[in-house]
Design a protein around this nucleic acid. Structure first.
Lengths: 231, 231
DNA sequence: GTGTTAATTTCGGCT
DNA sequence: AGCCGAAGTTAACAC
């Protein structure tokens, strides 16, 4: 890992063309040759970058560039896609280098997979008398997140999202169309379950007779924990 | 901008919970108080981070943490969402600080907007005798990228994507449903145009009678340039 | 300000 | 290896 604070201009050419005018920025050069160009604001996304696998070559600037004040040129190229990032460095203000080694990586908790498990474990959240058929029920158009039966024994397909968007409703609609063509399942109703449901998504779902259910991750975790303690 | 190379463990709590075990990493502390935790690999995405607006407070570790080898604790909090990132620093291996100032920002060329302009300028790419009605034609369910007429004078709605995914087909389908309900436009056919069309998206589109068209950005730019020179 | 869509998306899982 | 879907997505743009 090498960190350089430098006044530079940057040009990217690849899937699109992009240019950064002369300014002072952070250059983060990783072990795999990849390079990030960061400013002192924005979010975690760099102003410009080159993804691995790629490699850096450092050039001496030609006379024209020297006349413009360029002291060195970093060229980062990706073998496969022929993407290229060129950094024209005018002045280096600081530098820091250190061997980091492999990172053990991030451990996450609370994503869609957990919501799905929590709802499957607490299937009565869907309504009294509901029973779980199975999670990740495969169909020709993809896996239904949760398949259940209601108190009358009718099949219910559940699509689970962290954030309920219009896409999720479309997805569930495709599953329902397919399942309702199968006499083994029909009639199948749909439930769109998410931690947060966007108004447009709710409207589309309800227009199509799909029930919307807002999931409270914290509460479901609580139920799960207390059940774990009691039984 | 402050850059620190440190051996640390990190805990995030907010929209989800996440943990990074003890390892040596780069801490990038930006002017707005935001913090990025980078490893020496991966892509431009940090292992963990805190988005602005937020602020950093540095704590002395309590006796337990000192016993574990922690020398200082960085706590980054976001006022609104109550998200929190806690970095337990064991050892600092290097540090670099510099005032960067505002960045002029990135200038891009070659995104979806350009594809749309190129296709509108070269509407005969859709077929002989096609004419442009207008770009960004507003409807109740969103803007149709390009509205055109074919050689017979029938309306054609075009959805343009850089990468043609199933979502784009659904989007175009919604526009077509709406436009075909309007006797002023009906019958309306659809064209799904993209630089790259995924097989599933192509299948769904063709099932629904939507024509797929692969756009060659380089070639269209060439046509545009030569027309610019000739006329 | 709110909502919708694109992104040089990246990342993980599964076929 | 390729395809598909989620993401603490973030960022730009329209209403």
């Amino acid at each position: 890992m090498r960190l350089v604070i430098a006044t530079c201009s940057v040009d990217y050419s690849g899937r699109l063309n992009a240019h950064l005018p002369l300014a002072t920025r952070v250059l983060m050069l990783k072990q795999d040759g990849s390079l990030l160009v960061h400013s002192d604001g924005g979010s975690y996304k760099p102003l410009n970058w080159m993804s691995p696998p790629c490699f850096l070559t450092v050039h001496e600037p030609d006379d024209d560039l020297v006349a413009q004040g360029v002291s060195q040129v970093w060229q980062v190229t990706q073998a496969k896609t022929s993407d290229m990032l060129v950094v024209a460095i005018h002045e280096i203000h600081g530098e820091l280098e250190h061997e980091l080694g492999e990172d053990p990586g991030l451990i996450k908790e609370g994503v869609e997979a957990h919501l799905q498990r929590l709802l499957a474990d607490n299937i009565e959240e869907l309504g009294d008398g509901f029973t779980l058929v199975r999670r990740e029920f495969m169909t020709a158009v993809g896996p239904v997140d949760v398949l259940a039966r209601d108190a009358d024994g009718n099949t219910v397909a559940v699509e689970i999202k962290r954030r309920g968007d219009i896409d999720g409703v479309e997805q569930l609609t495709r599953y329902l169309e397919l399942l309702n063509r199968d006499p083994h399942f029909a009639p199948v109703t749909g439930v769109f379950a998410a931690q947060e449901i966007k108004p447009q998504a709710r409207k589309l779902a309800e227009d199509r007779g799909i029930r919307c259910l807002v999931l409270d991750y914290e509460r479901l975790t609580g139920i799960d924990d207390s059940q774990g303690r009691l039984f």
